[in-house]
Amino acid sequence: MRIIKLDAIDSTNLYLRRLSLKERLVDYTVVVASSQEKGKGQMGANWVSEPHKNLMVSVFKGHLDLPANHAFYLSRAVALAVVATLNGLGVPNLSIKWPNDILSDNKKICGILIENVFKGHCVSSSIIGIGLNVNQENFDELPQASSLKCVTGRDFDLDEVLIALLGDLKAYLAVLASTNYQAELKTAYERLLFKRGEIAEFTTKTGAAFKGVIQAVSTSGKLQVLVAGNKVEEFDLKEITLAY
């Protein structure tokens, strides 16, 4: 494992991507930044973080050889690794908001952005970006955001959180090499799925609102929702937004 620590940077994912064009990266090359100016979340959303208070990390994972239509199992594994780390730190009431935001007490404390490289019909490597709110307490204009300190009332050592996270990440990514990874990761992920089995509110990309009951997540990562007429429909990330 190689850990690169930086101060101000545009984005840890972008840094790793540029580095991969210059040299052959070893498995678990890790980039950690004290602050980043162009951090991104899902769908290009900005990730805003106070310097020196949170964990902004990107991890290179090669040799995946994961079938392309199973790419979402990587997302499942990463989300479960983060939850395992937070459980170990005593963070309460954890859940996964589809596709891979991590919530505590129904507020977002972690975002994940995974950028895959495909070769043929397989995911060959990936850059896994994780933004974890750790010691930040002020979230102006972000009422659904929180942090480890906000929910536990105590400060955390960022290096200790990083080491724990990397250990859990390696353990869960190793599951992808097992013969039973599909059932194991799907079951564990859906057990933690936010609003599963409850009436949830959604907004379509055209702004239309509707209600439904989350059933599961498909192999490809589509959200399966029981809607009016007792029908189960599938939606991808670009089609709907799930309300908190």
Score class of each variant (00 low, 15 high):
residue 238 K to S: 14
residue 62 G to L: 08
residue 189 Y to C: 00
residue 224 Q to P: 00
residue 2 R to G: 04
residue 71 A to M: 05
residue 152 T to E: 11
residue 122 C to H: 14
residue 232 V to H: 05
residue 145 A to G: 03
residue 105 D to S: 13
residue 107 K to Y: 10
residue 46 N to V: 12
residue 216 A to K: 01
residue 241 T to V: 08
residue 129 G to M: 04
residue 212 G to C: 06
residue 163 I to Y: 11
residue 39 G to P: 01
residue 136 Q to K: 09
residue 185 L to R: 08
residue 199 I to E: 15
residue 213 V to C: 12
residue 179 T to P: 02
residue 69 N to I: 07
residue 125 S to H: 14
residue 62 G to C: 11
residue 22 K to E: 15
residue 29 T to S: 12
residue 242 L to P: 01
residue 236 D to F: 04
residue 201 E to D: 15
residue 17 R to M: 12
residue 198 E to I: 00
residue 113 L to Y: 03
residue 191 R to T: 08
residue 214 I to D: 03
residue 178 S to H: 09
residue 199 I to F: 12
residue 132 L to D: 04
residue 77 A to N: 08
residue 127 I to M: 09
residue 12 T to P: 00
residue 238 K to E: 14
residue 101 D to S: 04
residue 109 I to T: 06
residue 181 Y to T: 07
residue 64 L to F: 08
residue 58 S to K: 05
residue 138 N to L: 11
residue 73 Y to A: 07
residue 112 I to W: 04
residue 243 A to G: 14
residue 185 L to N: 10
residue 235 F to M: 07
residue 186 K to G: 00
residue 231 K to S: 06
residue 137 E to F: 03
residue 54 N to P: 05
residue 145 A to Y: 07
residue 151 V to G: 07
residue 59 V to E: 03
residue 89 L to G: 10
residue 151 V to H: 12
residue 61 K to M: 12
residue 88 G to V: 01
residue 112 I to T: 02
